[in-house]
Design a protein around this nucleic acid. Structure first.
Lengths: 146, 146
DNA sequence: CCAAATCCCATTGACCCCCATATGGTCCCA
DNA sequence: TGGGACCATATGGGGGTCAATGGGATTTGG
């Protein structure tokens, strides 16, 4: 599989590590991603993670603007100041640092959520509620599959 | 037959597996669908399942919008985070995971419901009631098939 | 020199391949 | 028309494999 799909919840162990779901690790291997670029999501209280080219994309977007514009400045504040590179250990586990905990509210468990070209780390409860709200709104707008 | 029709209820075994009705498997074979894209339905407490092109259709819909818009983000949360690929075992059975149980309320039995280009997994009781309610509403509005 | 991060190995349990059995329907023939 | 052979589907379960998890031992960095 070549994109991140579905969601799964894993436990954080006594050392503060959590296993990244095997299917996600498979995608990382397929895309030859060895290091994760993680940043505080722009919309949700979640950490988004993907390959380094994700950061490249953001930077190209900035480069297309006036480097002294408020937009470019703001964007850099988010993607540089709110981003970090992380690596998995050999069992495919990730350290859940305060960088992650503070922004997401994660404590004991992490819900991994696939987003096609990247995935996210959520506090389980928050994900449930946010997804339910999105579904509700979609229903009100009368949209359907197809 | 080239579309999913009718409904049937099958038992979940001790290992949490359930047989997909043979007629549905026949449709899958006809359409050359080897992997199921399953997602949490937008309207009903049911899991919808179809071929991978179902996801493609959703993604094309997203691609038509601003990728950073709240709508696109929300849609991705549902179809990527709320969707998963699943495969049948060689006997044509499906694992009933918590992903399915939590969203549908399914426990011992699954009602499979044909929806033309896809099919759905329901808790039997919920399906009965929802279908009865739909029939009732239709009657009140004085509408008839045809 | 201490605390934290990483390596390495063990355990547990879930999932999947494979084969066996049950159940119900259809067809054929006497 | 009734009985029985035959077949497809649904269901049950053994056992191997792999992912998630736990924790001791070693290294790294401040």
């Amino acid at each position: 599989m070549n994109r991140f799909l579905s969601h799964a919840t894993n436990r954080i162990d006594a050392k503060g590590r959590v296993s990244v779901p095997s299917s996600f690790r498979g995608v990382l291997a397929t895309l030859d991603i060895r290091e994760l670029y993680c940043f505080q999501d722009f919309v949700f209280p979640a950490i988004s993670a993907g390959g380094p080219e994700l950061l490249d994309r953001f930077e190209r977007q900035i480069a297309g603007e006036d480097p002294f514009s408020p937009q470019a400045n703001e964007m850099s504040l988010l993607i540089h100041g709110g981003g970090v590179f992380m690596k998995l250990d050999q069992e495919g586990r990730l350290m859940v640092t305060d960088f992650i905990r503070d922004f997401t509210g994660i404590t004991n468990e992490v819900t991994f959520v696939g987003r096609a070209d990247h995935f996210q780390l959520w506090a389980p409860q928050v994900f449930q509620e946010t997804q339910a709200a999105a579904r509700q709104e979609r229903r009100l707008r009368g949209l359907r599959p197809g």
